[in-house]
Design a protein around this nucleic acid. Structure first.
Lengths: 248, 248
DNA sequence: GCCGCGCTTATCGTATACAATACTCTATCT
DNA sequence: AGATAGAGTATTGTATACGATAAGCGCGGC
């Protein structure tokens, strides 16, 4: 699960250190985890749905064992809820839970942003990667690439954590990110892409500026309030309706 | 993993809501998780040690399957590190990693403490459970109960998170706590029990007082600095030496 | 003597088979 | 008619068996 972050670190190596990547083998468990998250994000599974081992196994053409391990992993990330002998369900989400997730995420990223602010004082180049992502974000907004926007948005915030050099922070942040991915799914199209790009640039500038309380306030606004503006409950209802399933 | 928190919530129910607990069955996976954490905390496994499925399975008298799932769970909590086809190892710890864990924990608990401060303004009874724990802590210190101190210490901080009503926060906090349990193991005897009890009472008072920056500073001191004072690297070396194993 | 090659063994990854538990539906009793 | 007990089915939990991969060791070539 922390492997993606390692890959990011690798892509940031200087030429002197550049080597062939270690390329760790992907086991079925890893693939299953990805597949399940993706399925949840694209609405194949809906919040509250049961996730049946045998069914997943059959659809992915593997046995139940690796699936079980993948499900356990997702359980401990809060994405699935397990009751012994009664099976796994995708997490139930409502506006309240969304807010709780966002609040925790805010706490983590505020810490990260403050830390980066400190690091910038000695070396302003620290946050160069954030600027790069902001540039990509602007480009994606220009060409109306909603998928790109969503990906880069997540990447920005992950990088925010990564740059602190605290792997524990990244590892702690990751499950929250996964949960949000699943909750929002493809809902990103609802929002104004230009403003997304601008908000991130502002954040990067504020980190650079060294103004602590302004950064804090802005981050709070960016994380907590922006997503709240979309009509969440309606979104959930719409997704449920579009699938039109009853197997609860 | 979040089941303990549920149990806590149950013990705080008012009489009106009090019912028989749902009593969920304990599968071998759950038991295995507990056993492994305990083993790690008591020094049966040392940081960096390999944790071999078959061996654990044999010693717990179960097959490998439930063990594998338990190990996956612990992996995603950062307690174990897995490299495909090469097995699991207990996390490697040094002073740097300890600090990283503590920093993230501080970020989470600061958020929790601030939130409780807000909640106290409308209902001061909110943090009554913390006061109770503080009382127990004093009692434990009086009778020199080191194990009780350690347990109550953890319980205080978990309750700090629980009282915010944000389950996501608790779930995010829990893995950090487990990691710290393993790192410190039985090292609690090194420290002054009276001062531990006092520090927690001070924190509770500060939450009640509503003084924001004083609370922040005190929490930082309590979480970050106090544990740093013990000679960490020496502790690790001592534990490794006392086991005298070489199987790395 | 040292380096590289292939074999052996330990261990992990996956599949299959069986046991335990919970849900569902029907038949029966009151 | 309603409730209830029971059988049958679906699904999860666990055990065993087999295949895949990597570390360790001895052999032969240079």
């Amino acid at each position: 699960m922390q492997r993606p972050s390692l890959r990011i670190a690798a892509s940031q190596m200087t030429d002197a250190q550049r080597e062939l990547e270690p390329l760790t083998p992907k086991t079925l468990v890893d693939q299953a985890v990805e597949a399940i998250i993706q399925a949840a994000a694209t609405g194949v599974f809906l919040p509250g749905d049961r996730v049946i081992e045998a069914e997943v196994a059959r659809r992915l053409n593997v046995s139940r064992v690796p699936i079980r391990e993948a499900l356990r992993l997702l359980e401990s990330q809060g994405i699935l809820v397990n009751v012994p002998y009664r099976g796994m369900r995708l997490m139930e989400v409502d506006a309240g839970r969304l807010r709780k997730i966002l609040e925790v995420r805010l706490a983590l990223e505020t810490f990260a942003a403050f830390k980066l602010q400190e690091m910038c004082k000695t070396d302003p180049a620290t946050i160069a990667p954030l600027d790069r992502i902001c540039a990509d974000l602007v480009a994606a907004a220009k060409r109306g690439d909603t998928y790109g926007i969503a990906t880069l948005d997540t990447k920005f915030h992950r990088t925010l954590c990564t740059l602190t050099g605290n792997e524990v922070l990244v590892a702690t942040w990751e499950p929250l990110s996964s949960q949000l991915t699943i909750i929002f799914g493809l809902a990103t199209l609802q929002i104004d892409m230009e403003s997304i790009a601008r908000e991130h640039s502002d954040l990067a500038d504020l980190i650079r500026s060294g103004r602590r309380s302004a950064l804090e306030a802005n981050l709070r606004l960016h994380i907590l309030d922006s997503p709240q503006s979309i009509d969440f409950d309606a979104l959930i209802e719409r997704r449920k309706a579009s699938a039109g399933r009853k197997k609860r």
